[in-house]
Amino acid sequence: MRTRTHRLALVCGTAVLAAGGLLTGAPTASAAAAEANCNYIDDSARPTVRPGDTGDAVRQVQCLINYYSGYSNWLEEDGGYGSYTLEAIHWVQTCNATTGGADGIVGPSTWSRLYTPKPDCDLDL
């Protein structure tokens, strides 16, 4: 579980990134590279993931967010879909204008954007 200090570090790190740090421009990583680095589940096994879920599919979501955010420890890859993962999914869904909006549910549209995010999606939590 995250502490208040860890939360503050996340907020401060987010502010630096949003102000022009690592997240400006299109991601340089490819979907194939993401698959190689985030291999908790098979790429073809993209189940629907919801708040409160646990397991390797959640861990995969967390890894992909870390991978594309450029901040490898932004989310703990613990396999638990809690409030920090929900905030991050809302960011992905809002920035990428996924089908269904920012509902926090990782379905086909969100999975697609986790592997191939829209260019210029700056972290803004």
Rank of each mutant, 00 (worst) to 15 (best):
T3W: 04
T5E: 13
T5K: 10
T5V: 13
H6Q: 05
H6M: 11
A9S: 08
C12E: 08
L17N: 09
G21L: 14
G21T: 12
G21Y: 07
L23Y: 02
L23E: 13
T28F: 00
A29P: 12
A31Q: 11
A33R: 13
E35P: 03
A36C: 10
Y40L: 14
D42P: 03
D43Q: 11
D43E: 05
S44M: 12
A45V: 12
R46V: 04
V49N: 02
V49T: 06
R50C: 02
P51E: 00
G52D: 13
G55L: 00
A57K: 04
V58S: 02
R59V: 04
Q60V: 07
V61D: 05
Q62C: 09
Q62G: 03
C63D: 05
N66E: 00
N66W: 01
Y67H: 08
S72D: 15
W74P: 00
W74C: 02
L75H: 06
E76Q: 15
D78H: 00
D78I: 00
G80M: 02
Y81K: 02
G82W: 09
G82T: 13
G82S: 04
T85E: 10
L86D: 10
H90D: 06
W91E: 05
V92S: 02
T94A: 14
T94R: 08
C95G: 13
A97M: 14
T98E: 06
T98S: 09
T99G: 04
G100D: 04
S109F: 10
S109P: 13
T110Q: 12
T110D: 11
S112A: 15
T116R: 06
P117E: 05
K118H: 10
D120M: 10
D120H: 12
D120W: 06
D124R: 15
